[in-house]
Nucleic acid binder design. Structure first.
Lengths: 254, 254
DNA sequence: ATCTATTTGTACGTATGTATT
DNA sequence: AAATACATACGTACAAATAGA
């Protein structure tokens, strides 16, 4: 039996592939490797760890599943350090909430607290380009919806409005969390009660808030932006609660 | 070549193990499987997917890395659906922020917005048991620190105070995010400037806020709890900014 | 456009480890 | 203690993808 040239933690609890994966993570950190840097090839790792091919490959799949590396075949190929994509991070975090039963209410409690702060920090700092993008998005729901399908499309579009805003923040944490919540809400399955017609009044309010918000952002009116978003959140909240919405249970794939 | 009895997505982009992993996820969702439920054994999966053992195993490692399954050896063993643990979710999300450079300021912007809402929702709803736990935690920093090491310990303890609060929320999203931020801050490496002595005044303020907070929570004073936490966050923020703190760059293991 | 070299990906057979009964 | 039912690990052979000559 060949002996390992690279020492692994002696924790018998962890399977070898996991141990190898952890060892490689440490190695990446210690060497200050950056996205794009190449890890040793399969053959070398097999030798360095003194392990079989399958074991090394399983370790690589672990790192890949976590979004930390990508592999390519062919000459010049191999395994490369990779920055975890936002999409991947959202998927992984989404899995955590799969078995919890998050409610619309839970999500809006956070949105109400965070989004006003977001827009306050963005006021006066956004490019005309992005502002135009926001206005274009609003345009997608300038008329009340006539069908359930249309309503759903408008719902998604109006959420995209918030995703665009989230992306503008220079606070990666705030940006990510808002984006994540928008994703959760996009996955919502909305069952409108048959006897309750779409609430046109609330819909109009929401649209007007967004228009006024763009103006406030353009003019750099920090306080106004915050206040408008706060009111907008309250409106959207009651709109959601009025409908019988339910979180779709599924795993996001990336 | 044996042909697959279970159809996989024809996306050539994805490697087979990933395809298998995704297929199994779908299968779990469609069958409404719950944590503890057993997946088909290796042998059966090999047959069902018409693939080699290694491929199936790599797929399992992927699911395991995402925290969705656990495997056990021995009779009655196999692979079991598993609820993604909070610890695992924090680790996976932490990886996302590894390459971003999150600042103390970024984190506190969120804490300031979220934690006051957290305590407002908890006022009057906490068991005396947990309240006592909070008081015990405060006891760990009843005296100003005399050394850097002691200061760090107190820092961690005072963060634990917030982690306990986070855990009490019945809002899984709010609970998780605050817990996650506390983790990030715990990993902080604080370099106090040599010429700046510990700010005893700010330290005392922070401790007093926490004590008053426990009282407000016990008495069910919703508004007071919110206000105290808000003030506390501002104080803690300036305390952190006054020190030259830096995020430790590492991968959390679980 | 074809060949060739390189590197990961897939397959399969065997042996070993581990926990339950 | 032994048999059983699982996952775990190993080693080899070959397939597929990609870059460069």
């Amino acid at each position: 039996m060949p002996h390992a040239t690279t020492r692994l933690r002696a924790e018998t609890r962890l399977s070898r592939p996991v141990q190898v994966a952890e060892a490689i993570k440490e190695w990446v950190v210690e060497h200050g490797m950056r996205p794009g840097d190449r890890l040793p090839g399969e053959a070398e790792l097999i030798e360095r760890f003194g392990m079989a091919k399958g074991t090394i490959r399983e370790a690589m799949r672990i790192l890949e599943a976590q979004g930390l590396v990508k592999t390519r075949t062919g000459p010049g190929g191999g395994t490369f350090v990779h920055e975890v994509s936002r999409q991947r991070a959202k998927a992984l975090l989404g899995n955590y909430f799969y078995f919890k039963n998050l409610t619309i209410d839970d999500i809006y409690r956070l949105r109400r607290a965070l989004e006003p702060e977001l827009v306050a920090s963005l006021a006066g700092k956004m490019s005309e380009d992005v502002l135009a993008q926001l206005e274009a998005t609003i345009g997608e729901y300038s008329e009340p919806s006539k069908s359930i399908e249309e309503e759903r499309e408008q719902h998604i579009a109006s959420l995209r409005f918030h995703a665009i805003l989230a992306e503008q923040s220079d606070n990666p944490l705030l940006s990510f969390i808002i984006d994540f919540m928008v994703n959760l809400l996009s996955d919502l399955t909305v069952y409108r009660r048959l006897y309750s017609p779409p609430n046109v009044e609330l819909w109009a309010k929401g649209r007007d808030y967004q228009q006024r918000l763009v103006t406030a952002l353009r003019e750099g009116e920090r306080g106004a932006a915050r206040a408008i978003m706060k009111a907008h959140m309250e409106t959207a909240w009651s709109l959601m609660l009025g409908q019988e919405a339910e979180m779709e249970r599924r795993f996001i794939t990336e």
